[in-house]
Design a protein around this nucleic acid. Sequence first.
DNA 1: CTTCTTACA
DNA 2: TGTAAGAA
Length: 132
Amino acid sequence: MNKVKTMNPRNDSIYPISVVMNMTNLSARQIRYYETHGLIKPARSKGNQRLYTPADVENLLLIKSLLDKGLNLDGIKAIMNGPKPVETATTTAASPTAPLFNPQRPGVPKLTSLYPVNNQEALNDLLKHKHK
DNA sequence: CTTCTTACA
DNA sequence: TGTAAGAA
């Protein structure tokens, strides 16, 4: 019942430039232009034909939106090959030491302390006072 | 017929 | 960026 249509072992979804044009609403000129500027790198077929992957289309879409936001090709280029979301994160994170819990089963006699190592100092202090 | 390259506007 | 010409 199922019609397997051209299911080759190497079937990467690729589109010719015409399809990409319809998907991105960009002109062939623009698509090729962005390629010369290194924003996309579509593979080539035997006849030197451009083969666009879905990833390429996504990039084109991103380029389009970024372009619309007022950036130039060089700026977009910088963004694309650098996972740096321009964030001056002043993350004063005080060590995200996740307080992991020890999955101790009921009946284990080797229970010395079930408190996070983080509070060991405070615990000792408390015990000291109590023991006094 | 579709796409590619080069080149001019 | 659009478009023309000639080749593939």
